[in-house]
Write a protein that binds this DNA or RNA. Structure first.
Lengths: 235, 235
DNA sequence: TAGTTTAACTTGTATAGACAAGTTATACAA
DNA sequence: TTGTATAACTTGTCTATACAAGTTAAACTA
């Protein structure tokens, strides 16, 4: 792995362990500690800043941002399995449907492919504490993901794509809205007494900028929470 | 302004104008065009990548990410006025309350200050197409924001803070949930037939990492839409 | 004492150079 | 024709240096 990434990870650890309380050592000191040039240290610090770990102040140093450790980020691109594991929540996934289909007009539009192109269609229900609260509808481009074993769907698709297929997942465009439940939602989720669902639609891309997945994740509103860290962009 | 920021802005313009269709010129070419070193170009490109304009591919170049131009980012830190202006939507803001108060226990916790510290309390209603759809509750630390004129509240608080007071707004931690409307919501918003509100709670920080504002923004669900760009962080 | 200057820190910006590593198209060989 | 090597591109990482600009605390001056 690259030097600046290792430094980044080590600093994250030291922040988590409260090894440094309010401020990081100066860039000069860090470059001596890690035997790296100042620019390499600055690359690691840029990552830390981007991820919301530190705030750099000109002339002063790098202040540590007190993350509410409980406020794990649901933002970013994280698989359901990764998320539940971080929180220590027990959840089960049941695959309702997994099949190869030819894209219809709507699906083709979602995946930026031509109508009739072969794709995977996947429907999963997530159960937390015995309640069915999340419905995930996935389309995957079969030109990119040729095989999609049932085991991967029950476990973690991202683990399969990155680990087995060696695909690099890079970025996503997401949209969050609140909508009325469909008959499908009511059929598959425990929706008694809830009149809305939170819908997260995502397009997920690889490192070479190819779109490979479209996901519609439908949440019961009481179990939905989205935490975000944002930096202001001037100009 | 710094060189790499000007280059960043110029490239954003050229992407928007479709001056470059699918790919950016190579870093070498750009460094000649802008008479800058490659590292300076790379700083501009890092910003573009961070903001979701391009995807860098090792050995190939910088691919332009097709942003749905309509999908303006509600993510990031953008004032209500800036957002409405970008979309060309006509909206009005009415100030329901603007007063100096001593923080109670809850408010003190929100702003990370001691109980009894002086702060601004602000309540505003946003009206779009003649419907009252957003209720904004703001607390501002008065040790940082000493004066808060009514005019600034009706126009744009951020414009006042950055323009008049010279404060640098830097980052925010946000949380989005869906909740039941309070009596207050029903009193101030047009909630007929809607049984939920989308609640966005934000802590907003300055460049020196001081927390100066807590905002609770309560949206009627049919008018709520959140668009996000996220990059996957490995390790 | 109180205020100001200065020196020694800090981070920010820009440059130049070297090498590693991934991609592509051409030239070459079987 | 087909496949392979190669050369010329591309971006990624790391280093070293120089100077600008913001902060702080000690030293100095009135």
């Amino acid at each position: 792995m690259q030097k600046y990434r290792k430094i980044y990870q080590d600093i994250v650890l030291k922040i988590m362990n409260r090894q440094w309380q309010h401020m990081l050592p100066s860039e000069h000191e860090l470059s001596q500690m890690y035997e790296a040039s100042r620019e390499t240290i600055r690359k690691a610090l840029a990552l830390l800043s981007q991820e919301g770990y530190i705030q750099k102040v000109h002339g002063k140093g790098s202040l540590i941002i007190e993350k509410q450790m409980l406020d794990f980020p649901v933002s970013g691109i994280v698989s359901f399995k990764e998320m539940m594991h971080k929180q220590g929540i027990e959840a089960t996934t049941s695959v309702e449907l997994l099949e190869q289909v030819q894209a219809d007009a709507y699906q083709a539009d979602c995946l930026d492919i031509s109508v009739g192109t072969s794709m995977w269609q996947l429907i999963r229900v997530r159960e937390i504490n015995g309640e069915k609260v999340i419905l995930d509808l996935d389309y995957l481009n079969q030109e990119i993901v040729e095989q999609l074993p049932m085991a991967a769907c029950q476990d973690s698709i991202y683990e399969y794509l990155e680990g087995q297929l060696g695909l690099g997942i890079s970025f996503a465009q997401k949209e969050i809205t609140v909508e009325n439940p469909t008959a499908h939602d009511i059929q598959l989720l425990d929706m008694e007494g809830f009149s809305n669902v939170v819908v997260i639609r995502s397009k997920v891309y690889l490192e070479d900028a190819r779109l490979f997945q479209f996901t519609e994740s439908r949440h019961r509103p009481d179990k939905f929470r989205f935490v975000d860290f944002a930096r202001r962009v001037h100009g």
